[in-house]
Simulated scan of single mutants.
Amino acid sequence: MRVGHLLLPSLTPSLCFSIPPIGSSILQSLYSCCFSSRRIYSLNRVTADMENTETKLMEKAKRPVNFRLCRVSGSMTEIMEIQAENPTFQVLFIPGNPGVVSFYMDFVESLNEFLDGNASIIAIGQISHTTKDWESGKLFSLQEQIDHKVDFIRQELESVKVPIILVGHSIGSYISLEILRKFSEKVVYCIGLYPFLTLNQQSTKQSLIGKLAASSVLSATASFLIASLRLLPMWAARPLVSNSIGASWSDTTVQAICTHLRQYHTMRNVLFMAMTEFRELAAEPDWEFMRENESKLAFLFGIDDHWGPLQLFEEISKQAPTTSLSIEREGHTHGFCCTVAGSAWVAQHVATQIKNRFSDHQ
């Protein structure tokens, strides 16, 4: 009994601590439930806030491309654009030749995303490089195409308060430089992609294209032959283009070829514009102008591009040494816009150039 009596005191404290009172257990359970519920609610609220923020950013960066027609100095013009709610700058994209804006839809969409939806982007087509012959067969020279873009800025961008950035592809780079002459105060940056700024006397392809474009008979014949493909319905034309000249091209490009380049008036204007390009670009670039504006200029060259050869890259680096120059080595071509991968890579490059430019001046 004594032993038992001695054991009880040693067991009782142990029992008291190991078996809590019923009331305490209930309070702890309630506290645990409340705390867990509050934590779950907080986590859910944080998760919801993050999802809402991410959704808003995605919606901001993935705005749909809008196509519209507008008259610029009397000429019907195809416009492709993405408008930002509160843009920090305005991008005006000038296409090459052919100057069909729908060729660049993948590029414009990618550029909008890489710029985080912070820019309004407008791509303006060349006159009469359109699905319909709005100009009744009239042919437009390079200078008329330049004047057309200048008139567009005066008509639609004159009141824009944010800085304007020009992005041009091929001959669009040359047009962008001419626009910069007219609007040196409004335009803060000019990016040329695979730029065609002067004739490449070493290029056999350019020589052949020049001879074709210079002959009105050959140009008309070539345009007629290409336009005769309009006899094919769209369901037959698309696979023909895809399987012949555009095996790796995007659906957007194939569609643009079928809707625009099978038009006689478009092909005639493509070749007529090319003829006037060859005449105008027989001279060297205006190096003095480029030196005066080299802080505003950036160019992207390709490895094997006869329109913008690497000897032009070297010449610019000598004549205007502080110009931002880059070489694309990823295997994309002068016609980068014809593939989704090419469009995305070049769009990311342009966005990086723009972001670096603006961060340097903040």
Rank of each mutant, 00 (worst) to 15 (best):
R39N: 09
S184V: 08
A222H: 11
L6Y: 11
R238G: 08
E185Q: 14
I94M: 11
R329E: 12
Q206D: 14
F336P: 06
I245T: 14
E54I: 14
S215N: 13
S216N: 03
V162Y: 00
L300E: 05
F196Y: 11
I82M: 07
S216Q: 05
L166K: 03
F224R: 10
K138C: 08
T266L: 10
A220L: 10
F299Q: 04
R181H: 12
V217S: 12
Y104Q: 08
A247F: 04
L300C: 13
N243Q: 09
R154W: 04
L43D: 03
L8Y: 10
I209C: 03
F17Q: 09
E81R: 06
L142K: 07
G117W: 05
R71I: 06
P321C: 10
S10G: 05
L271Y: 04
F107Q: 01
I22W: 14
E59M: 07
E284A: 11
D133V: 13
L166W: 01
G192T: 05
F272L: 07
I245D: 06
A341E: 15
F299P: 02
P95F: 07
T323E: 02
E330K: 12
S36E: 07
G117D: 01
F196K: 01
K318G: 00
N52W: 12
T204E: 15
E144S: 04
I94C: 12
F301K: 04
V3P: 02
F140V: 08
